[in-house]
Design a protein around this nucleic acid. Structure first.
Lengths: 91, 91
DNA sequence: TAGATAATTAGATAAACATCTAAATAAAGG
DNA sequence: CCTTTATTTAGATGTTTATCTAATTATCTA
């Protein structure tokens, strides 16, 4: 898990929207692309970025590729955040 | 709070290291810069990025500027993460 | 196997980013 | 005030990123 890749992936609003869609249900690349005002190759690139960061998973089903959330990476990042935002720096 | 600005700020390893330093104690810009193999203006720019994202605060004290963590923004981001990585998408 | 559909890869371009050096601003102290 | 110290701002440069169109790959079906 690379924190840099994860945060870079989350730094784009389109990619965060994709994550929010996938929270509700698994979706094909085409169905995801339909939700955005953007060409399919751009969405494909965003999906690739999310997958490289480990935030989503893909599985081919015939002609389609179905994407789904991988929540375990979120857990890791939350750990880091809880650690740095913890209250153990009392004066 | 802009999630985009926060995630962009966290996407750089130097900036995350700065956050980890500030978790331990408040520090001046110069003291922070000393910890890195990078020129002061670059660190100053990173501090500015972190501050714009709301992740750190600064206060002048004489010639020095003292930086400190602002943990409230981390809470907000963790909320978003808990939400998208939650388990309410049962089949 | 030819045509249609789904998706990715390649290549181009403009915008954003990280870093540096040099210059500017702010405060302290003789 | 003038010099030194701390820090930021400006300007330049190379790298990465987001997006597009065009081309390619993979699969299904008639």
């Amino acid at each position: 898990m690379s924190a840099t890749l994860v945060f870079k992936a989350l730094a784009d609003p389109t990619r965060r929207s994709i994550i929010e869609l996938l929270k509700k249900q698994d979706m094909t690349a085409g169905d995801i692309a339909e939700q955005f005002n953007m060409k399919k190759p751009s969405i494909s690139h965003h999906l690739s970025t999310l997958q490289t960061a480990g935030l989503i998973l893909s599985e081919r089903s015939g002609q389609h590729i179905i994407y789904s959330l991988n929540t375990t990476v979120f857990q890791d990042i939350m750990m880091w955040m809880m650690n740095v935002s913890g209250k153990e720096n009392e004066k």
